[in-house]
Amino acid sequence: MPDTSYLLSAVALCASITWSLRALPFAVLAPLRTSTTVDYLSRHMPVGVMVILAAYTLRAITPAQLTVTGPALAVTLALHLWRRNAVLSVLTGTALHVALTTLLAHN
């Protein structure tokens, strides 16, 4: 069994490494708050990511699937352009898509 000083030094070393790793993001974040590059990316990347995800999702859609996906996509896009709220538009579009899929699948 290791002696007490060895165990205490091991615990102190682990605690200091853990504290340092948790503090590191805050130390790195401070200079990034005034960065023009980060400001530019924070304004333009969400739109770019959403366009890529939408194109990837719609790449293999068939005309038969458009009866469900088309209205849901149109409502999502219109709601987002009107309210500028991504959460609202995505949740509404998803709910409409699920509702249309359920209604049309049972008919």
Score class of each variant (00 low, 15 high):
P2S: 00
D3Q: 00
D3C: 02
T4S: 01
T4V: 04
S5A: 05
Y6W: 03
Y6M: 03
L7V: 09
L7C: 04
L7R: 12
L7N: 02
S9R: 12
S9V: 00
A10E: 09
C14A: 15
C14H: 05
S16G: 08
I17L: 15
I17Y: 12
T18V: 04
T18S: 11
W19F: 13
W19N: 04
L21A: 06
A23I: 03
A23C: 04
L24Y: 08
P25G: 03
F26K: 05
A27V: 03
V28R: 10
L29D: 13
P31H: 02
P31I: 00
P31K: 02
P31Q: 05
R33Y: 08
T34Y: 15
T36P: 14
T37K: 09
T37Q: 09
T37C: 07
V38L: 14
Y40Q: 09
L41F: 10
S42E: 10
S42F: 10
R43S: 04
R43V: 06
R43F: 09
R43M: 09
H44A: 10
H44P: 09
M45D: 03
P46L: 01
P46D: 01
P46Q: 01
P46V: 00
V47P: 08
V47I: 12
G48K: 12
G48E: 05
V49L: 14
M50Q: 06
M50P: 00
M50T: 04
V51Y: 02
V51H: 06
I52H: 11
I52T: 12
L53P: 10
L53D: 10
L53Q: 08
A54W: 08
A54K: 06
A54G: 11
A54Y: 11
Y56V: 11
Y56S: 15
Y56W: 15
Y56M: 15
Y56F: 15
L58G: 06
L58V: 11
R59C: 09
A60F: 10
A60R: 13
A60P: 06
T62G: 08
T62W: 08
T62P: 03
P63V: 08
P63S: 05
P63D: 09
A64H: 09
A64F: 10
Q65K: 05
L66M: 15
T67V: 15
T67H: 07
T69Y: 14
P71D: 02
P71V: 00
A72V: 06
A74Y: 02
V75A: 13
V75D: 06
T76I: 02
T76R: 11
L79C: 02
L81Y: 12
L81Q: 11
W82H: 11
R83D: 03
R83L: 10
R84Y: 07
R84C: 09
R84I: 06
L88W: 07
L88Q: 14
L88K: 11
S89P: 01
S89W: 04
L91G: 06
G93H: 03
G93C: 11
G93V: 00
T94A: 13
A95D: 01
A95N: 02
A95R: 01
H97D: 02
H97W: 11
V98R: 00
L100Q: 02
L100Y: 01
L100N: 03
L100W: 01
T101P: 01
L103K: 02
L103D: 05
L104N: 05
L104T: 15
L104F: 08
L104Y: 08
A105W: 06
H106P: 05
H106F: 12
N107E: 14
